[in-house]
Each structure stands twice: as structure tokens, then as C-alpha cells.
Amino acid sequence: MEPIIHLNGVSMIYGGNGTRATALSGVSFDVRPGEYAVITGESGAGKSTLLAILGGLQIPSEGTVRIHGVDLSALPSDGLADFRRETIGFVFQAYHLLPYLTARENVMVPMSPERVSPGEKVERADSLLAAVGLDGKEDRLPSQLSGGESQRVAIARALVHDPPVLLADEPTGNLDSATGEQILDLFSGLNGRGKTVLMVTHNPANLARATRSIRLRDGRVEEDRILAPLAV
């Protein structure tokens, strides 16, 4: 099967002459559709940088990145924005909901530049919120939601455009373990329905649900292991 993610010799060097920081050096791996890869590594190993590159938020200093058949280095900035909208769903540790919008409105944010009828947008948001178990809480503000509920809203938001790839940077980092488990259940469910998931995590317990583990160290892939065979 064609890999959905193809990285070859990816390096990321921050800063200029004096203060050069190498965040990634020569990272290469392929991810096939439907994989659930957990990315681990110490703080500063380059995990977030890797996700930013995979999500087209950052252009690597070197190497090629091809995702879902698109060569990211060839895309202009609008092309990258379109790529993110159509192909990638981001979930962050700190949720990053807009505090002045209700749950429903937060889910609708990615659709706001689109010429879709308001009714259709609401319908789509509500069905996504129901899918993450937030039925009846559509009109709450983030301040009126628990951490787990906020993260569910963020996941619903990431799913708005039904992207094939989900990128999550420590999505359970701010949650207690029980709530974290529920969020991981959601990811497992999504993975079960065919989404490719790449999740950065510090928590070794998260490895249990993944099909693959990639460990970074000082910007290099230290270990790349298949945990469970992919059901084809």
C-alpha cells in the first residue's frame, strides 16, 4: 500500500549563524494509511517540530515531505493552508479553543471562510459534537467545560473537514488519567474508522493502543517499532 506519509532526510535547523539549533536531523520514515503511531522522546527531542512539519505548519530546512500524495515543499502558503484544511486535523495539549465562542462555534471556526449555508454548518458541528459525546453541551463556552470536554470539542473541530490524518501533540497532557483514557478511546475509535493518527506523548501507557512507536532523540529517530500488525 502507498504510504500516506513519506518523510525522507528531513532536517530542521532553527536560527541563524550564531545560535543554530538543530531540532531534527535526517529523519526518514513512511506511515501507511490507518496506522496509529505514537511519537515519544525527551523534552527538546524534536517531537513538536516533527508534527509542525507533518502538518505543513513549517517548511523543513532539508528533505522531502509527501503527505496524501502532496509534496509539501512545492506548495505556496495558500496551498499549505488548503492542505491543512483538507488533509490534517490538529489536536493540541492546551486545546486552543477560542474562549469567546461556544463549543458549537468553535467547531464551526474552520468552516468560517467557507460559503456553506449557516444551517449546514450548525448541523455538521452538532453531529460532530454528538460523535465526541458532547450532546447537549453545544452552547457552552470553553470556561463552562471540563478539560476532557474541551479536548473533545478540539477533536470535533479537527474532524470538521474529515481529514485522513490526525496529528495530536500530547492531547492528554493536561488531563487526569481517567479522562485521558476517554480521549484515547476517541482516538482509537477514529483510528478504527480509518484515520491515520500520529500522537506525541510522554505517557508510556499510551503505547498500548498504538500500532507503531517512533522514538526521537536529539532530532533523530532512535527507534521505530511496529507494535501491532495493521489489519488490511
Binding site: D78, D82, R85, F92, H96, L98, V109, P110, P113
Partner: peptide, 14 residues
Amino acid sequence: EIGVLRAVGFRTRS
């Protein structure tokens, strides 16, 4: 906030 908007696919124009 602007970073989030870009992450969810807002074009510069938006």
C-alpha cells in the same frame, strides 16, 4: 489564536 486559525486551514486572506 492566529496560529490556531492557520492550523485549521485559514488562508492568509482569511
